[in-house]
Design a protein around this nucleic acid. Sequence first.
DNA 1: CAGAGTGTTCAAGAAATAATGAACAATTTG
DNA 2: CAAATTGTTCATTATTTCTTGAACACTCTG
Lengths: 164, 164
Amino acid sequence: MSNEGDTQISELEREIIDFFVNAATAFGIPKSVGEVYGIFFTSEEPLALDDVTQKLQISKGSASQGIRFLKSINALNSVYLTGDRRDHYTAETKLRDITDGFIKERIRPQLQSSSERLKILKNTKKSKHLTSQLNTLESWTKKGKLVLPFVSKFLGSNEPQKII
Amino acid sequence: MSNEGDTQISELEREIIDFFVNAATAFGIPKSVGEVYGIFFTSEEPLALDDVTQKLQISKGSASQGIRFLKSINALNSVYLTGDRRDHYTAETKLRDITDGFIKERIRPQLQSSSERLKILKNTKKSKHLTSQLNTLESWTKKGKLVLPFVSKFLGSNEPQKII
DNA sequence: CAGAGTGTTCAAGAAATAATGAACAATTTG
DNA sequence: CAAATTGTTCATTATTTCTTGAACACTCTG
């Protein structure tokens, strides 16, 4: 029966949420997911599902799915509040944790399946030119896989980086 | 009046094109753009607009827009063929060139506008918590900007990389 | 154990995005 | 300079993707 959740969000909060909506869209993630992360990010207190629906005025379904996705990439942390059986979360704000989750759940599987498909294609009869192009693609996926840990490490550090 | 363009594409070529359709989708780029790059990538000879429409069976509009986008990120190279006034292109296959084009045309502008919007928000009156969150966001965009040249260099090299 | 509280699922509708193709502008050719 | 060739634009249509909300399952609580 909680009812402090329907607090209006401020203009600044809305701006910050929009920041995440933009970012989400850029990463091919639904707008509503960006909003959900945004509301957690702006909130000092842990929020539950219906706080999200009330503050953002989105459906329970969207909020539920948004939270699930954000949990899957470690962008939300569970918080247990005594005397309230709703699940509460706070935004994870360590960029590296979120990046790692995103890489692990979204990028790696995609790269992996691409490189597996390529492997199969290498066994087919083909022209010189296509052989060469397949080798090019193979090197691309390899580089893709190799760059990920470096991006992760880079985003996790607080110091300037150098490439040697 | 050229008419060698209506050659059927092979099963393997279709697979390679699908590879790019997948990749394009993952980057939030329309399927048709992936197809267009794919047909150039598989072709040994330079192709013109109507070769693309015939081989892929897509509309002239899609092909034209796909080519324009691909040129804008340096994924296609112009080739001038004497005795044919149509524009011809080949696929650029240096990963770094394409990556750089994509970063310059798509990613940097997005990051830039985000960080400008953030700068404005920093001047508004706000709570301790939101001040702190805005600082977090600022550090994220900074790291984003810094990581790009690193990714570019990494993808351009043929040697293993280390971070120091 | 009936009723209330909480979260999930997924079919249907709404919204956003992409593809088409006809009209057009620009250029070249005979 | 008329006709043909080439490529672009953009309103319309088609497709894909997202959001909604009602039905459901599960868990608590009195």
